[in-house]
Amino acid sequence: MNIGEFKLVNNRLLGSIATRTIDLPRLGLRPVESTNDKAPAYEIVALNVGNRWVQVGALWEAVARNTTGEAFLQGSIDDPSLPEPLPIALFGTTEEGMRVAWRRPQRRDDFGMATRTGSRPETPEGGDGFGPSTAGNDGGLMGGSGRFDEDEPIY
C-alpha cells in the first residue's frame, strides 16, 4: 500500500507520509556519509513542533529477491509519539520521485509453529546444531543427580 512520496525539490529529497492515524506532511531524506558498510544510505528527518529538523528514522539500500532485482530503500520511522515503528520501503529514483510503500508484517500464530522460508542450515554432523538431549525417556536429567546443590554455582 502506498502511503506517501518523496521528490527532489531544490536539491533536497522532500516528501510526506499519511495514513488514517499518522500525518507527516514535511519529511526529508538526508544522505549519510560513512565508510561503514552497515551505515544507512539516508536519515529520515521531520519538522518538530519547534520547526526544527529531527531524525525519525533511517533507510538502507536493498535489492528485491524476485526476478527483477530492483533496487529500493527500506527502513522505518520511529518516534515516542508512535505506538510502534512504521516499516517502510521507497521505490523509484531520486530524479523521478519515490513512492513510499508500507506492508503489515506477517505475524505468527502465538500457539502454532513459526513459518520459515528457505531451509535451516545443517551442522556438519547433520543435526540441528543443538547437540544431543540431556533428558531421559522419563523427562529427567541424564548423567547427574537431577538436582542442584546450593553449594554449587548455577550458571
Rank of each mutant, 00 (worst) to 15 (best):
I88Y: 02
E96K: 14
A101H: 10
I77C: 04
P80K: 06
N66E: 12
P80D: 09
F91A: 12
A71S: 14
D79Y: 03
R99V: 15
R103F: 09
G69M: 13
T67V: 13
R99H: 10
S76P: 01
N66I: 11
G112P: 06
R108N: 15
E95A: 11
F72P: 05
A71W: 09
A71F: 09
D110K: 04
G69Y: 07
P85D: 12
L73H: 13
L90T: 04
T68C: 07
T94D: 11
L86P: 00
A71N: 14
L82E: 03
T94C: 07
E70A: 15
T67Q: 14
S81N: 13
R108G: 11
E96F: 12
T94H: 08
G112R: 14
R104G: 05
P83T: 00
P83C: 02
D109M: 06
E96T: 09
R65I: 14
W102K: 03
P85R: 10
R104K: 15
R65Y: 13
I77S: 01
R104M: 14
T94S: 12
R104N: 09
I77H: 00
T68I: 10
L90M: 10
P83I: 05
T93G: 07
R108F: 13
E70G: 08
I88R: 02
E96N: 14
S81Y: 07
T68H: 08
E95D: 13
T67M: 14
T68P: 06
R103G: 11
V100K: 01
L90N: 04
T93Q: 09
I88M: 04
V100C: 04
Q74L: 12
A101R: 07
D109W: 03
S76R: 08
R99S: 12
P85H: 07
R103L: 02
S76L: 05
E95M: 04
G112Y: 10
T68M: 12
R103I: 02
L82P: 04
F111D: 11
V100P: 01
A101P: 01
T67G: 11
T67A: 15
D109Q: 11
